[in-house]
C-alpha cells in the first residue's frame, strides 16, 4: 500500500480494504456503514485520482490492484495486450496455414488480430492515465512456423480469455464496465470456438475439455477462473512481472 497524502484517500482505502484484515477491517466496516451520501461522493472523487499502478520498486513490473474496477480493467488490458501481441507475431511470422481452407484461416487470423488490437487499444484509451504500461511478452514456447503450434496457442489464449472475463465480471461494480466486458467476452468465445473447430471440428464448446478452466459440462457452463489462476497460466507468456494485490 502506498502512503496516502490526504484524508479522502485514506477513507477510500479503508472502505475498500478487505474485511479479512481484522484490525483495520472492523473499523473500516463501521466507518463505511456510517458514511453518508456526501462521504460516498467524496470517495468517488478520490477514485478519479491516478494512483500510478506501475510500482517503481518492481523494476519494470506492473501491479494489478483489484480493489476497484480500474484494477479489473487493467487486468483485461494486460490479457488483451498478450493476445494482440500473439496474433501480430503470427502475422509477422507469416505462419503457413494448410489445407483447402488455408486462405480463409489466414484471413480469419488477421480478423482476430485486429479484434484483439481493437480491444487492447480500447482499454488503453478508456483507462487513460490509470493504464498499466506495455507488457513484454515471451512466446519462446510457441513455434510460429508450425500451424499446429500456432492453433494450439491460439486456442489456449482464447479459452483462457473467456475464463478470465467470466471470472472477473462479477468483480466489477460498475454496470457500464460489466457491459463492455460482456461485449468483448462473447467475441473471444466466438474466436475460441472457431479455433477449436479448426483443431477438431465439433469441439467448439467441448466443456469437458475446459473443466480445468472452471467449465461444467453437465450444467452447460463455460470456463471461469479467478485472476490469480488466470495469471498463473498466462505467466509463461509474459516477461514483465505482474503483481496482484487486493484480490
Amino acid at each position: 500500500m502506498t502512503m496516502k497524502n490526504n484524508e479522502l484517500e485514506t477513507k477510500n482505502e479503508l472502505q475498500e480494504k478487505s474485511l479479512f484484515d481484522k484490525t483495520v477491517g472492523r473499523r473500516s466496516f463501521l466507518q463505511y456503514a456510517g458514511a453518508g451520501a456526501a462521504g460516498i461522493a467524496l470517495v468517488a472523487a478520490g477514485c478519479k485520482k491516478d494512483r500510478g499502478y506501475e510500482d517503481p520498486t518492481m523494476n519494470g513490473g506492473v501491479t494489478l490492484d483489484f480493489k476497484n474496477d480500474i484494477g479489473v480493467l487493467n487486468y483485461a488490458y494486460a490479457l488483451e495486450q498478450l493476445e494482440a501481441a500473439f496474433y501480430i507475431q503470427v502475422a509477422n511470422s507469416n505462419t503457413q496455414f494448410t489445407g483447402s481452407n488455408a486462405a480463409a484461416k489466414k484471413a480469419y487470423f488477421q480478423d482476430i488480430q485486429f479484434h484483439e488490437i481493437a480491444h487492447r487499444e480500447f482499454f488503453k484509451a478508456a483507462l487513460t492515465t490509470s493504464a498499466i504500461g506495455s507488457l513484454q511478452v515471451d512466446f519462446s514456447s510457441i513455434d510460429f512456423t508450425s500451424e499446429s503450434s500456432v492453433l494450439g496457442a491460439a486456442m489456449a489464449f482464447e479459452d483462457l480469455g473467456v475464463a478470465a472475463y467470466n471470472g472477473a465480471g462479477p468483480r466489477l461494480k460498475d454496470g457500464n464496465f460489466l457491459l463492455l466486458a460482456g461485449k468483448i467476452v462473447s467475441v473471444e468465445a466466438r474466436h475460441a470456438a472457431y479455433v477449436r473447430d479448426l483443431i477438431s471440428n465439433g469441439s467448439f464448446a467441448d466443456l469437458n475439455s475446459l473443466a480445468s478452466l472452471g467449465a461444467n459440462n453437465s450444467a452447460g457452463l463455460d470456463a471461469a477462473l479467478t485472476p490469480d489462476k488466470v495469471l498463473a497460466i498466462a505467466g509463461k507468456y509474459v516477461k514483465t512481472k505482474i503483481s496482484v494485490i487486493n484480490l
Binding site: 460482456g182 468465445a189 470456438a193 473447430d197 464448446a205 466443456l207 463455460d222 470456463a223
Partner: peptide, 14 residues
Amino acid sequence: ALQIHSVEARHASH
C-alpha cells in the same frame, strides 16, 4: 449467467 452467455457465443460461432 456469464458462463451461459459465452457458451451461447460458442454455439453461434459454430
